[in-house]
Design a protein around this nucleic acid. Sequence first.
RNA 1: GGAGUGGUAGUUCAGCUGGUUAGAAUCCCGGCCUGUCAAGCCGGUGGUCGCGGGUUCGAGUCCCGUCCACUCCGCCA
Length: 594
Amino acid sequence: MRSHYCGQLNETQVDSQVELCGWVHRRRDHGGVIFIDLRDREGIVQLVFDPDAPESFQTAEQVRSEYVLRVSGRVRRRPAGTVNADLATGRIEVLGIRLAILARSEPLPFQIDEEVEASEEVRLRYRYLDLRRPDMFRRMKLRVDVTRMLRNYLDAQGFLDIETPFLTRATPEGARDYLVPSRTHPGSFFALPQSPQLFKQLLMMSGMDRYYQIVRCFRDEDLRADRQPEFTQVDIEASFIDEEQIMALMEAMIRELFAKVLEEALPAPFPRISHKEALARYGIDRPDLRIPLELVEVSDLMQDVEFKVFAGPARDVAGRVAALRVPSGGELTRGQIDDYTKFVGIYGARGLAYIKVNQIDKGRDGLQSPILKFLPDDTINTLLKRTGAQDGDLIFFGADKARIVNEALGALRVKLGHDLGLVERGWRPVWVTDFPMFEWDEKSAGWSSLHHPFTAPAIDDIAQLEANPGDALSRAYDMVLNGIEIGGGSIRNHRSDVQAGIFRLLGIGDNEAAEKFGFLLEALKYGCPPHGGIAFGLDRLVMLMSGSASIRDVIAFPKTQSAACPLTAAPAAVDAKQLRELGIRLAQPPATGA
RNA sequence: GGAGUGGUAGUUCAGCUGGUUAGAAUCCCGGCCUGUCAAGCCGGUGGUCGCGGGUUCGAGUCCCGUCCACUCCGCCA
């Protein structure tokens, strides 16, 4: 039916007969000559029809946008002066000899490849049309290139692609599960996996040694631009390996990925930063190193100042006072500063103090700020020195609980970086290590895992761990690229006593642990190799690599922010019969509509 | 659960402080046109102003509620 893809044609086919199939991208009817841009996934080529071939010319007159055509014709060089430099096939055209309309098309709800993009709402409703756009095809193709390269790498390293169940059991901790009712066990439910975590660990206990899977995961939590209810992980686990070996293997994989797919060189090795240092310098555990701004610790300078807003948090062990120097920030208007104050309010900050640095060699008189009168000279001098302030700068301050200061100034740092055009070009990967094992959860008044409950602690003395859970570090590591966490993993607990101790610390009683994780604790007793792994967010990785603003743009059929599919109108009510078979009765009648 | 932005022709948008018959571009339809490539020129069709209520002599515009989309906070081991 077809001899070439439209986009593959070039001058080497001149004078040869070709057969093409594709969609009518555009049609230009000059009365006596008709041009049709024929599009397939590989590109666009111009067809020409003239009245010398009356049959095909008459058919071409009927053709409309997005009709599906099959054409036989002769490739020829375009006449002088009519070459289109914007088109890959612009030096040639195909003189149409025979033309068949394979399918007609009604006018589309939106135009393909228009510079004015349709709204995402419309694009998702007609996703199959949206995917016809060359931009979207390129993204899907990039995703294919990425997964192929990752598979090749992992295969070459001896990792085995092994499938794990989608119908599994709900786990306490972690995200809300998507549940699937069991017909054969009325009243019981499967859960869709949040990740294949436990299965991949069990595979290590099975002696598979090295496992990987490119696998769908499900989490019933609220959505974001980089979060979908179903998403894809590159899930990896290996036995008899420590964190150094895993990290070396994985950053080599990502380096090779960027080198082969994007022809971009990533640093070797990736820089590393401890969780503690990341919070201190960037206020966040996934720093975007493209932004040159850093938080500066000034708690020690503010403990005895008159200004209570600073002195209070400075003296509080859980508090923090930090500064953020904005180069040339003196140019910010009062209105802009008000907007940034409003911005940090989102993160719970109650204000945003600042000092304008007009002329640094004039000391106090060269500065401008409502808080200046509260600060003694030596505090000001140390502050200026420590922040490296220069004439024309502005220094923002955050003072509150450390968590609020970090989140507010961390987010402000990123926002300022973008607003002021300070974001460096390129790729800045970083490993974040030395995470705390646990964090205190105010709501449940208990410890919870920062990573997940199967992560090994840096010390394997359970008594020591239980004595000071807040100080314990874990053997977890996150790979962060340009401020986005693209992967995270850890060395796991391979001793049942350590694992059981961690469950106790997390407030999971022995009975509950036995019921929910008994199979894991049991498996740990039968010769579990030391093991660890990592999981990459494939969607986020491809989003970054394609320069997309949302993972929806790299998923063929994504959900909206309310976790619905505009194309299929899922989720939807089901027949009463289906519910009866599952032993389910609805507490509320389904909302009627559609 | 919360904050913000948006919802007007098939599509992308404009519509001021409430005031006549809601506009533009594009798409679509018809006509002209033999070298265009976002072809051009002439003409035409196309509207539940998201939905419901309220204020008013009068609502696309103001108020209340609600739905949808997007961004963010919470949430996401």
